[in-house]
Design a protein around this nucleic acid. Structure first.
Length: 195
DNA sequence: TCCACGATCGGCT
DNA sequence: GCCGATCGTGGAG
């Protein structure tokens, strides 16, 4: 499995968002490997996007978004959850792709434990949401700014999702810029958060 | 100083 | 299916 190079991430956010579908997100915690196939993402286009954290410019919270592509932007939300974004584009321009859902592949038992799952819980609820996948993969405030070319969290090649299986829609859970169709997801995949 | 914003779960209805 | 609880961030007043 090849780790995606910096040049994958330094391209436009909408391009990276679409191409992240089918790739494998890998989280290493000591000797434990947790991974899943990315099946749902949303692009956020900085100062030109009213739904982006960077719409009104750089702040302490969103500063990672202004780095060059290939870093992880993690933020705290709803007083109890974290969400993870892949920073894209060039240094100084705030662009990011929110990771909304993954299909669990490796370390499912560990993810169940982190998510507090009992045996009868449905596996589909393990990682089918941006805060759920962060909890399953133990991504929290400490992981903000993580370099995706390092060994803690990274993304590797996966299957190529054909254009015919990539669907687009409005982004979920936002008040502003709902008309932008910047959410991408894999058609028919069980772990996609909503149809 | 206040207010808008934003996922998930459990418990009701 | 809806409702409440949970709270940090940043802009407006």
């Amino acid at each position: 499995m090849n780790k995606l190079p910096r040049s994958f991430y330094t391209r436009p956010a909408l391009t990276v968002a679409k191409e992240l579908l089918g790739k494998i997100l890998v989280r290493k915690i000591g000797d434990t490997i947790l991974s899943g196939k990315i099946v749902e993402v949303e692009a956020y286009l900085g100062e030109s996007d009213p739904a982006s954290h960077a719409y009104r410019g750089k702040t302490e919270r969103n500063s990672v978004m202004f780095r060059e592509g290939g870093f992880l932007y993690v933020y705290f939300t709803y007083g109890m959850h974290f969400c993870a974004n892949v920073v894209t584009g060039r240094e100084g321009i705030a662009r990011a792709v929110l990771l909304r859902a993954i299909e669990p592949l490796e370390g499912i038992e560990v993810m169940k434990k982190k998510r507090g799952f009992t045996e009868e819980s449905m596996l589909i609820n393990l990682t089918n949401g941006p805060a759920k996948l962060c909890e399953a993969l133990q991504i929290k405030r400490r992981q903000n700014g993580t370099d995706l070319l390092g060994n803690e969290i990274f993304i590797v090649d996966g299957e190529k999702i054909p254009d015919s299986a990539v669907l687009r829609s409005s982004r979920i859970g936002i008040k502003n810029a709902k008309e932008k169709k910047w959410r991408f997801y894999v058609k028919g995949n069980l772990w996609v958060s909503k149809k």
